[in-house]
Each structure stands twice: as structure tokens, then as C-alpha cells.
């Protein structure tokens, strides 16, 4: 038997909203430690890795590890039927899971709705993501990163990210001209969510597709801060951390010029 009850149902709605554009079908791997998902987009340029710890659900029950093959589009449609304040419970019979039951209860428990999502067999290979000691790790307000991606997209579909000890610089060059945004580390003690920090092993400069980065910023509502990890000739890691776990996006770099 699998059962996972999340009092903050809105979190699940936002999580699904943050992956729906990138991935169409995915396996939710359920185990006693929690729920995880790893999936690449169709072009194998970007990968999303989601992890929700069992402790974040109450109750959480998963008698044996199994996978729920989900069409994220369909799941999103059903999630739209949940209120932002609803408690959401996921249930499945882990021996012959051919459907996922979703229960939405409003706070006063007067309104309970139940949906069954048909599951699919998804044969998806998992990639092993090497532990990387990144050249640069940048923490910044997630809204700031979202704005930079949106603003620089008016100039070009690519952005070069340069990180040095005391600056992260985003540069875009296109037909209409160029644009760049430079951020310096700040440490606002009273408002940690607005701080910008740079941990630097060595300077790094990489180019990425802004289309994908903008897509990743759908994770902005999940966390006040976003972490960017860069290493020369390695995919970028963009992470939004939550109490219950994290959502990580990896993006392969653009090379040559």
C-alpha cells in the first residue's frame, strides 16, 4: 500500500507546474524514504531531478519501493481541481498500481474530492549524476534570477554566465544589440532571502540557452533563493530548496562561438 498525505497541497501543485513544460511523461519512484523523479526533456539537453522526503508527508506509507508512471499533463489537469488550501493525499496499491488515487480535502473537511489517474508504463533510463565539486556556487533571490532570464531573453536566446570572486555577470548578445546584468555579493543579515553569495573555487564562464533557463524559473514560487552551480564544461545546476526536499534542474552548456 502506498499513501502520502501533504497538508500543504499547494506545494504539490507548484511542483508539478514547475516541471510540466519540461517533461511530458515521468516515473515517480516511491520508496520508504520518499518520492523522487528524474526525467530529461525530449532533446536531452535538460534534466529535472525532484526529491520529496517521507518526513514531509503525514502520514506517509510505502510498504515496498515501486514506480508510478505518470503523464504529467494529465496529472496537472487533475491537480487544477485541487484548491490551494486543500490537503492532498496520494494513494496507490503498490502491488498492481495501474492507477493513482488523488484525494483533495478542504480545510473544514466539508468538501472531499477523489480522482483516479490512469498510470502508464514508462521505460525511462536513469542517468547517474556525478557528485561535482563546482568551480562556483552562487546563491541569489529566485525572483532576481527569474527577472534576469526574462530581461535578457529580449536580447538573445543565449546567455553567458561569468562568475568571479566578487561578481556574477549575465551577458546576452543578439541582433538588436547586447545586454548584461552584474550582481555583487551582498549579505543582508535582516533579510537573508535577499542575499547574494558567491563561493568560488576558480573563475568560470559558460554559455546556456535562455529558453531552458526561463523554463527552470517556473520553480521560483517554491523557494525565496535559488542556487546556481557552475563548473567548466559541465552542465549548470539550478536548485530550488524546500523544507520537504528540492527540485534540481541540469542544463547542458552551449559551446563554441
Amino acid at each position: 500500500m502506498f499513501e502520502a498525505r501533504l497538508t500543504q497541497g499547494a506545494l504539490l501543485k507548484r511542483l508539478l507546474d514547475s516541471v510540466k513544460e519540461l517533461v511530458t511523461d515521468a516515473n515517480f519512484d516511491c520508496s520508504e524514504t520518499g518520492i523522487s523523479l528524474q526525467a530529461m526533456d525530449n532533446s536531452h539537453v535538460a534534466l529535472v531531478s525532484l526529491s520529496l522526503r517521507a518526513e514531509g508527508f503525514n502520514p506517509y506509507r510505502c510498504d515496498r519501493g515501486f514506480s508510478l508512471g505518470v503523464n504529467l499533463n494529465s496529472l496537472n489537469k487533475i491537480m487544477k481541481c485541487a484548491g490551494n488550501e486543500d490537503v492532498i493525499t496520494l494513494k496507490a496499491d503498490d502491488s498492481s498500481a495501474d492507477s493513482l488515487c488523488l484525494l483533495f480535502e478542504n480545510s473544514s473537511n466539508e468538501r472531499v474530492s477523489e480522482y483516479e489517474l490512469k498510470l502508464m508504463d514508462i521505460d525511462q533510463e536513469h542517468l547517474s549524476i556525478p557528485e561535482t565539486d563546482y568551480d562556483a556556487t552562487v546563491m541569489m533571490p529566485s525572483a532576481e534570477f527569474q527577472r534576469i532570464c526574462r530581461d535578457l531573453m529580449v536580447v538573445s536566446e543565449s546567455v553567458t554566465i561569468d562568475v568571479s570572486k566578487d561578481e556574477i555577470k549575465f551577458t546576452a548578445e543578439g541582433e538588436l544589440g547586447t545586454g548584461n546584468v552584474k550582481l555583487k555579493p551582498t549579505s543582508t543579515i535582516d533579510k537573508p532571502e535577499e542575499s547574494i553569495t558567491i563561493e568560488l573555487g576558480q573563475t568560470v564562464s559558460l554559455q546556456f540557452s535562455l529558453k531552458y533557463l526561463s523554463n527552470f524559473t517556473r520553480g521560483t514560487p517554491l523557494s525565496d533563493q535559488v542556487m546556481l552551480c557552475l563548473s567548466d564544461n559541465m552542465p549548470l545546476l539550478v536548485e530550488y530548496k524546500m523544507d520537504i526536499g528540492y527540485i534540481r534542474y541540469y542544463l547542458a552548456p552551449k559551446v563554441g562561438d
Binding site: 532533446s43 539537453v45 542517468l127 547517474s128 543565449s158 541540469y250 547542458a252 562561438d257
Partner: peptide, 14 residues
């Protein structure tokens, strides 16, 4: 013109 790489060049299947 810069070229987009693929994740398969960096992450190997398990």
C-alpha cells in the same frame, strides 16, 4: 554560432 551540447556527453546511464 554556439552549439548546444547534450546531457549524454556528461551524465552516463546508470
Amino acid at each position: 554560432m554556439s552549439k548546444q551540447t547534450k546531457l549524454g556527453a556528461f551524465f552516463k546511464p546508470k
